[in-house]
């Protein structure tokens, strides 16, 4: 079990480092990094704190197999994060559509005004 927990601990550290690096380079916005940092820190703590992991495993009915409980938690966390980002992407798409339509309508009206102005000035 220890090698698996060590691997999860290392992976959590890698995720934390990656997120912090991305934040520093402005590749990810702070509000979207919080979920990843929170999940990575929680998994790091659980992978290092044996008694806590056993207690969580007990809640999930996996008292004798806390490593499986941790893997199950990772799956749940990834599912929740994916769902959260699906919602964010949907909102962004709605905003994108509305903005695209607004730009098109405004461009059309500006073009119409320009043409009218040109016609007025030439007559």
């Amino acid at each position: 079990m220890e090698p698996l927990l060590n691997a999860i601990g290392l992976a959590s550290l890698a995720v934390i480092a990656l997120v912090l690096l991305s934040l520093r380079r402005a590749h990810i916005r702070v509000e979207y990094s919080v979920s990843w940092l929170g999940a990575a820190v929680a998994l790091l703590v659980l992978s290092r704190w044996r008694s806590l992991l056993e207690r969580v495993g007990g809640w999930l009915g996996l008292r004798d197999d806390p490593a499986s409980a941790l893997v199950l938690l990772i799956i749940v966390v990834l599912f929740v994060l994916s769902y959260r980002f699906s919602i964010i992407i949907s909102r962004l798409k709605d905003a994108n559509v509305a903005l695209t339509q607004r730009i098109a309508v405004l461009e059309f009206r500006v073009r119409t005004l320009d043409e009218k102005q040109q016609a007025d000035s030439s007559s």
Partner: peptide
């Protein structure tokens, strides 16, 4: 015809 060009494919 008048044309309303969209800047992005919707």
């Amino acid at each position: 015809a008048d044309v309303l060009p969209l800047p992005y494919h919707l």
